[in-house]
Each structure stands twice: as structure tokens, then as C-alpha cells.
Design a protein around this nucleic acid. Structure first.
Length: 270
DNA sequence: AGGACGCCCTGTTCGC
DNA sequence: TGCGAACAGGGCGTCC
């Protein structure tokens, strides 16, 4: 399930495999993956050009052709990229296929069709247009704290809202809350200064660690909640029972002993 | 404006 | 053993 670390992996993969090669042709194999663009516009933007940069903001990858404009890739929960040489190696569920002049191919694979592809002016333009918050790995501590101090609602949906900070999905949000010892339903207004700091530090540490381990859940440290994200697995910190609930409409795992819920009736300091 | 809920989509898992 | 229901969730829309 691509969140920021997986998407960063796709960006690195694109950068390592596809920059500098001339694009010979582009095939949109499923029109429905196009977001606000047409096959003709996509082909026009890419055909004959070379990709000169691969960037990422949150869960989006931006590929810049040398002619200007920008290809936007979003992966939903099952999307990925695959480069191959021989046509028979084309992966199933390839929705967009770029053929390079040197004979290699770049496939945008998206089995569940929850991702999408579009053309925009630039990454900055796209971020502004979609109202995305700062990237979760680039945001400064002060900005991070200011964003969440200015909003209301439960902390978990707020962390996952891409308009606040871009890049956090369901699984890493649970991990961040676990490592910061914050209950997922904590109202933002009830977070202490220390808790906001802990959330920021957890976010950075977890994302960096996951990117380094190539976003493989099994390779994350034993102290992480993620690999044993299951009610059957004990809390890696206290050995207690992990509880599954629904928060903001999403399956949520937390340790009620390590992540205590603030008392409902205690007065708020705000 | 927050929050509950539904929808999209399909591979996988679960329950009977 | 087999089949259908439920689940997974990123992003968006609707309604209260």
C-alpha cells in the first residue's frame, strides 16, 4: 500500500531507470486512469521528449519532460512502476505504457484502478491546485506544529489529511501515533507541546527508517507496530493487547496501555 | 468545519 | 472443498 516511503521508492526507481531516454511512444491502456487529461494531451506532452527529473510530493511522483509540462503519477493503494525490455515481460494490469527509443519500457501498473495519471504545468502548480500541505519529510518542526495547532478534530484523521501534511497514509499514521504514545482519537486542541514534538520526531524517524529499509514492513525494527499490525500480536513495547477500531472511517490499531486516551470531561486548556 | 458514511476498484482473506 | 461476502484503503463527494 503505497504511502510516502513506497512512493519515494518509485521516484528513485524512475530516476534510476528512465531519465534521459527518448520517449518513442505512449499508450494509455485504460482511459479511466486519466485525471483531467486526455490520451492525446498525454501523448503530446511526452512523445519525443526525454524525462529530465523525477520528484515527489507526498504520495505523488512528478516526471518532468525536457519540453516542459509535467507527468503526475498517483498510485492509489495498489499502483507501482515497472521497467522491462521484452514485450512479453509487460506486467498484468499495466494501465500506461511508455516505450523508449532504446527499446526499454516503463509500465504504470495499477490493478485496483485507485490511482491516476495526469499532466500538469509543474509540481508546484499541482500542489497548489490540489491544496496539498507541505511534504511530510520536508516540513519544518515549526510549520508542522503550527499546522496542527491551527486545526480541530481528531489527531489521526488530521495526520492523514493531505491538505495538512502530504504523504501519511493509514498504516504509517498508526505507527507515528504509536511511537509518539498518542491515542488516535485525541482532539488536536488537547495535544501538549511535548506531544506535538513527539509526533514530528516520530514522523521523521519512521519515514526515514522505512525509506532506508525500502518500505519493507518485515525489515522494520522489532519495536515497530507495523509488522505485527494485528490484534493477535502483542504490543512490541508493553506486551499488552493491541486493539482494532475504526477512526475516521479507517481500520486503526493502537495499544490502549501505551497510547492513553485523554479523559473526556477534563477541562481543556484552550 | 468536523465527522460519519458511501463510492470506486479488484485481489485476497474469511466464514459458512 | 467451494463459493460468495467482507475486507483492504487513498481520495473524493455528500450529508448532517
Amino acid at each position: 500500500m503505497p504511502e510516502l516511503p513506497e512512493v519515494e521508492g518509485f521516484r528513485q526507481y524512475l530516476q534510476a531507470t528512465s531519465l534521459g531516454r527518448r520517449i518513442e511512444s505512449v499508450a494509455v491502456r485504460r482511459r479511466r486512469i486519466l485525471r483531467g487529461t486526455s490520451s492525446a494531451r498525454l501523448r503530446e506532452a511526452l512523445t519525443g521528449s526525454r524525462l529530465v527529473a523525477a520528484d515527489r510530493h507526498g504520495k505523488y511522483v512528478f516526471a518532468t519532460p525536457d519540453r516542459g509540462g509535467c507527468l503526475v503519477l498517483h498510485f492509489g493503494m495498489s499502483g507501482r512502476l515497472k521497467v522491462f525490455r521484452r514485450p512479453v515481460q509487460r506486467p498484468p494490469h499495466t494501465r500506461l505504457l511508455v516505450r523508449f527509443a532504446d527499446g526499454s519500457h516503463l509500465a504504470y501498473v495499477c490493478p485496483r484502478m485507485l490511482g491516476g495519471v495526469s499532466i500538469t504545468l509543474s509540481a508546484e502548480h499541482f500542489v497548489r491546485e490540489h491544496g496539498l500541505g507541505p511534504d511530510a519529510l520536508s516540513v519544518s518542526r515549526a510549520e508542522f506544529k503550527a499546522i496542527f495547532a491551527a486545526r480541530r478534530g481528531m489527531v489521526k484523521p488530521a495526520l492523514m489529511n493531505q491538505r495538512n501534511v502530504a504523504g501519511l497514509g493509514n498504516l504509517y499514521t498508526d505507527e507515528i501515533l504509536f511511537q509518539a504514545s498518542v491515542h488516535p482519537r485525541t482532539p488536536l486542541g488537547r495535544l501538549s507541546e511535548a506531544q506535538l514534538d513527539a509526533l514530528y520526531r516520530s514522523t521523521r524517524r519512521i519515514l526515514r527508517t522505512s525509506i532506508r529499509r525500502r518500505a519493507e514492513y518485515d525489515e522494520l525494527p522489532r519495536s515497530y507496530l507495523l509488522p505485527g499490525r494485528d490484534e493477535a500480536c502483542p504490543c512490541p513495547r508493553c506486551g499488552g493487547r493491541i486493539v482494532r477500531s475504526i477512526v475516521g472511517g479507517r481500520a486503526t490499531y493502537h495499544c490502549p496501555r501505551c497510547q492513553r486516551r485523554p479523559r473526556v470531561n477534563s477541562p481543556s486548556h484552550v
